[in-house]
Design a protein around this nucleic acid. Sequence first.
DNA 1: GTGCACCTTCCCTTGCACCGGAAGGTCAAG
DNA 2: CTTGACCTTCCGGTGCAAGGGAAGGTGCAC
Lengths: 131, 131
Amino acid sequence: MRIGELSDLAGVPTKTIRFYEELGLLPPADRTPSGYRDFGPDAGERLAFIRAAQAVGLTLGEIRSVVGLRDRGETPCEHVLDLIEARAADVDRRITELEALRTELHRLARRAKRLDPAECEPGRVCHLIGD
Amino acid sequence: MRIGELSDLAGVPTKTIRFYEELGLLPPADRTPSGYRDFGPDAGERLAFIRAAQAVGLTLGEIRSVVGLRDRGETPCEHVLDLIEARAADVDRRITELEALRTELHRLARRAKRLDPAECEPGRVCHLIGD
DNA sequence: GTGCACCTTCCCTTGCACCGGAAGGTCAAG
DNA sequence: CTTGACCTTCCGGTGCAAGGGAAGGTGCAC
């Protein structure tokens, strides 16, 4: 399978496929005599895995660590669990931060609608922010 | 006030102060005869405003648009309200996405603890992700 | 034999918000 | 007069995940 066919199949741009190969997320593809990449039938599934892993918030570096274990014949399950739990903790923290920010933004928006622009103090940028 | 003094006062690195000036977030500072920047007394407050605006999620580009209005003598309140409301909508969307992701991550973590690594199918990267 | 789509490598750019370091000028104390 | 802290500009790099485009080779139909 050539890169364009894989690209159509997986819905991933050819640029991105070469980039993933360069990063070690895909094993180096075989080459035709003229130098074209020649992907095996598993390549589409590997790309789907990468996309699914990205969707749960893993970075390409983390995904490389997972597929690296797999390509060396180990079962990456435990490592994947660690990554998932770390990501879950990140997401929980991030949600807490964003909820606080949301509260603050709604407070500011309410205040902005209540106040008269004429009350702006000339020396400051905006009395809405920074109190 | 020289840049180091302002830096200590505002808790913002000198590098960052020059960077903000270059971006137009701070008005170009006066210079001493030897070329040193000489900030007026309002500079600290301007930096505090920038930090506060960053804290509610505005980008430096958006902050520039606010201080730009202010520096041209207009009251930026309405523009600030628009930015705050847009940011609030972003944050709401982001929280919704992250909550869905959190649910998915917790589901995966539960499944990972339940399953036996020996059940890994050899042809796939990891059965935990991508079903 | 000539289009045309496709492929190759290579290097640069994007966006965001900075940080690091080099080379050199300035100022006050000792 | 030297030391050291501070300042200047300029150039480049960081992290993440790619995307853009040039210059040139390949494969296949007409």
